[in-house]
Amino acid sequence: MAMDAGEIERLIKEGIPDAQVTIRDLAGDGNHYAATVLAPSFAGKSRVQQHQLVYNALKGNMGGVLHALALQTGTP
């Protein structure tokens, strides 16, 4: 079970419409990615809240199908 980078990006943008998303595949196994998500709507939110928004956008795939997503979030 794995996810491809395009699907991750699509889900994040669906959940956070103003997000700029860049994804790097860390291991080539569809399970370990690094993602940078920048969104104006993150302004004023703590890192934990920003990451939670991304995890919510991933609709439960995070921690299950998607084992590792190294996240960096912020405002552009």
């Binding site: 890192r47 934990v48 995890y55 190294a70």
Partner: peptide, 21 residues
């Protein structure tokens, strides 16, 4: 914590974050 992964760090009862944070 409404946080999908492990590890999770807590300081004085407050959720700080996972490995990245």
């Amino acid at each position: 914590s409404n946080w999908p992964t492990i590890p999770q760090l807590y300081i004085k009862g407050e959720f700080v974050g996972g490995c990245d944070i």
